[in-house]
Design a binder for these strands. Structure first.
Length: 427
RNA sequence: GGAGAGAUGGCAGAGUGGUUGAAUGCGCUUGUCUCGAAAACAAGUAUAGGGAAACCUAUCGGGGGUUCGAAUCCCCCUCUCUCCGCCA
């Protein structure tokens, strides 16, 4: 959420920043409602002050031996009733305005950071670095991972539709083992890098989704439980950030770094026909997520470190990848700055996103009221939150299958994973 | 699912209609004392909104109501705990 004070004070600059994003956003309705609300608030609080005064006067009069039924008290009560009636008109109007303003604010995306490259869409993203070109497999007929997987019998899409529907997968045998190996490997690496592992609830409530930014704007992307205010989590970012919602954290507790494996559930509304085959776009997928809660003045360097932690997984797996910085038009809703890591998929002859590492600065902290306190300093300030995939497990599996395939149709298991698969070297 | 109890400041814990934003203790900050520390003593110590400021307003789990006036009374909701039932 953006700071209403900043919008009020510097609306032109805020508007200009918003205009760099895709989609159009107009601050004027917020400014109008805000002006109305503040006028009402001034009026209301003056009446309230008089009402409080009357209450005290009545109390004093009676305590001082005055007649509770006397004319003096009666006059005050009459005035009190008049004030109350006026308040009864103003209060609901002001409350309604506040709700409207808040709803509009919740639908505004974060401002792109100053360093984010300007651009309209993913084509304007800037490649920052590239790694592992020499590992790219060469050969005549490189198969896509879904063909490799079906041939090896390690996963099955068709039967999954019986259990659920399309865009679900069932992993079998070595496929299940490989998925589990990847999860354990990724977690072990991140734990070694200093992240504390978390196993959070996989169902999250709407307050949590509002704090991280999925609600109210992206409700159609989530799976909601019909009888409860609970949703299947779309990413572990939601429970991990919300661990600290409505809390004031001592600054010496920061930075907080968590990693978690969770399944993630997404409706993928609006993506019909895209990536319909394979492990790339499913309604349920595993992900190891990295989340940091940091002090505002360290968020940039912590962000760089977090991206490195994700990159190290790809490098350990010897998977070719590149790192791109998202342009302002491609930036996610809550992000001020974002790096995507894209892994090489030889069958498609292209790089595909496998990790997205965002610095949300105080955007989520404001929505979730997550603050820190610097000892000796008055007041509190909002923390910064960072998140990144470390990595998307299904897509990693796809990349491993495609990049480690051999001419005879088998797939080598990356060296670092072999200990996690009982020493097995080939599928 | 059934029955009961509870939710107050960073923490513990008073407070059942009237100058209570809230006693007291702990914690924290500052000062006195001390070579220094501890102890003792004194003062201070919530958050948010509005206002140039003085200051005003809101907040005792959330929402609504009664009243001139609500932490306190009434209604609804949420959450926590205990017992019973069911259950991995």
């Amino acid at each position: 959420m953006l700071d209403l004070k900043q919008i009020r004070k510097d609306s032109a600059a805020v508007q200009a920043k918003l205009n760099l994003r895709s989609g159009s956003y107009d601050l004027q309705p917020i400014l109008d409602l805000d002006g109305q609300q503040r006028n009402l608030e001034t009026e209301r609080s003056q009446l309230q002050a008089r009402s409080n005064e009357i209450g005290k006067l009545v109390g004093q009069t009676i305590k001082g031996g005055g007649d509770p039924k006397g004319p003096e008290v009666a006059a005050l009560k009459t005035e009190g009733n008049e004030v109350k009636q006026k308040l009864g008109e103003l209060e609901p109007r002001e409350r309604e305005l506040k709700v409207q303003i808040n709803d509009l604010l919740l639908r505004l995306p974060n401002l792109p950071g100053d360093s984010a490259p300007e651009g309209e869409n993913e084509e304007d993203n800037v490649e920052v670095s590239r790694w592992g070109d020499e590992n790219k497999p060469t050969g005549e007929k490189l198969l896509p991972h879904w063909e490799l997987g079906e041939k090896l019998g390690i996963f099955n899409f068709e039967r999954s539709t019986k259990i659920a529907q399309s865009r679900f997968v069932t992993l079998l045998g070595a496929g299940a083992a490989l998925e589990r190996a990847l999860i354990s490997f990724m977690l072990d690496r991140q734990i070694a890098a200093g992240y504390t592992e978390v196993i959070p609830p996989y169902l999250v409530n709407s307050d949590s989704l509002t704090a991280t930014g999925q609600l109210p704007k992206f409700a159609e992307d989530g799976f909601k439980c019909a009888d409860d205010d609970l949703w299947l989590t779309p990413t572990a970012e939601v429970p991990l950030v919300n661990l600290y919602r409505d809390e004031i954290i001592d600054v010496d507790q920061l930075p907080i770094a968590h990693c978690a494996h969770t399944p993630c559930f997404r409706r993928e509304a609006g993506s019909y026909g895209r990536d319909t085959r394979g492990l790339i776009r499913l309604h349920q997928f595993n992900k190891v997520e990295l989340v940091k809660v940091v002090s505002p003045d360290t968020s940039e360097e912590e962000h760089e470190k977090l991206v490195r932690n994700a990159e190290e997984i790809l490098e350990a797996l010897k998977l070719p990848y590149r790192k791109v910085e998202l342009c302002t038009g491609d930036l996610g809703f809550g992000a001020a700055k974002c790096y995507d890591l894209e892994v090489w998929l030889p069958s498609a002859d292209t790089y595909r996103e496998i990790s997205s590492c965002s610095n949300c600065n105080d955007f989520q902290a404001r929505r979730g009221n997550i603050r820190c306190k610097v000892p000796g300093k008055k007041g509190t300030q909002f923390v910064h939150t960072l998140n990144g995939s470390g990595l998307a497990v299904g897509r990693t599996m796809a990349a491993v299958l495609e990049n480690y395939q051999q001419a005879n149709g088998s797939v080598k298991i990356p060296e670092v994973l072999q200990p996690y698969m009982g020493g097995k070297e080939v599928i």
